[in-house]
């Protein structure tokens, strides 16, 4: 019975794919074209930004301590690349590692919540409330507890990423219509089969929405943690450069962290779009 149920579910999912197979190539080409167009747009935008920046500096005769020229920042970017890339790599490790741990935690917990209605009714409201709290405010406590290494940065990212991921995953796992679940139940599927074949596929768009929401704040969280703990990432680099008045270095760090944050965010947006379509 369970086998027929499973076959039916996967059948309905895979059949349209099979029919569309001749169109796969065309779709791949369309996606590539869209990607190229997106890249061209970003390049254009960046070019325009740099031009405007340059024009502003030149026309307003902005002194270097207010804002350096794009060339100065570029020179620093290339000249100090070893140092900058090391800091960037440190920050990215904390960011991605923290997000990965948060995702696993969120999925496991949200999955457990589908096991027991009581569990989810007791804890979900609390998690929803905590989600709106300024989690980053407790970063200093994590420094107190985890010390001044990378563990703190990771912990801060986990704390901040966990709540949007968890709330969305829980929502996603509960999103299948009751009659689909009843059908699986009638077919004799067990909890694990229902989870894998119904809840997880239905929840994927929600999960990716959670990842996207978390990504918006993840780099910020990692940098803030470094900032408070003094760990050698971009956050610390920017703060030190600003206190030693090494402004081109500071601006290079700012540009780099903005690029990292926007790239991460838009990657997750793309991922979400691909999954929700």
């Amino acid at each position: 019975m369970a086998a027929t149920g499973g076959a039916e579910m996967s059948g309905t999912v895979s059949r349209p794919d099979a029919r569309l197979l001749p169109g796969r190539q065309a779709e791949a080409e369309r996606m590539l074209a869209a990607l190229l167009r997106g890249l061209a747009f970003v390049a254009l935008l960046l070019g325009a930004l740099v031009l405007i920046w340059h024009a502003l500096i030149v026309t307003l005769a902005v002194p270097a301590y207010v804002a350096p020229s794009p060339q100065a920042v570029w020179t620093t970017l290339t000249g100090e690349w070893p140092r900058l890339s090391q800091a960037l790599w440190f920050t990215l490790r904390s960011t991605l590692g923290g997000m990965a741990i948060a995702l696993v935690l969120a999925l496991v917990l949200a999955g457990l919540f589908t096991l027991s209605d009581l569990l989810s009714r007791a804890f979900l409201p609390l998690i929803v409330i905590l989600r709106t709290a300024p989690i980053l405010a407790i970063a200093p406590l994590l420094i107190l507890i985890f010390g001044r290494g990378q563990a703190t940065s990771v912990a801060v990212v986990v704390m901040v990423s966990f709540f949007p991921m968890m709330v969305n995953a829980a929502r996603g796992f509960r999103s299948p219509k009751a009659n689909v679940l009843e059908l699986m139940h009638v077919c004799g599927a067990n909890w694990w089969q229902i989870f894998l074949k119904v809840r997880l596929p239905f929840a994927l768009p929600y999960i990716f929405t959670g990842i996207r929401m978390a990504a918006a704040g993840a780099v910020l969280s990692a940098m803030l943690a470094e900032w408070l703990s003094g760990a050698p990432g971009l956050g610390t680099l920017i703060l030190e450069a600003s206190s030693f008045r090494r402004l081109p270095l500071m601006w290079a760090g700012v540009v780099l962290s903005m690029a990292a944050a926007t790239t991460l965010f838009f990657l997750t947006v793309q991922l979400e779009r691909r999954m929700t379509r």
Partner: peptide
Amino acid sequence: AVLVDCIPIIAIAPIFVIW
């Protein structure tokens, strides 16, 4: 707004300190 939102505040705060 989305673009501004994904810029880490921490990155731009030092610039505002200067300004």
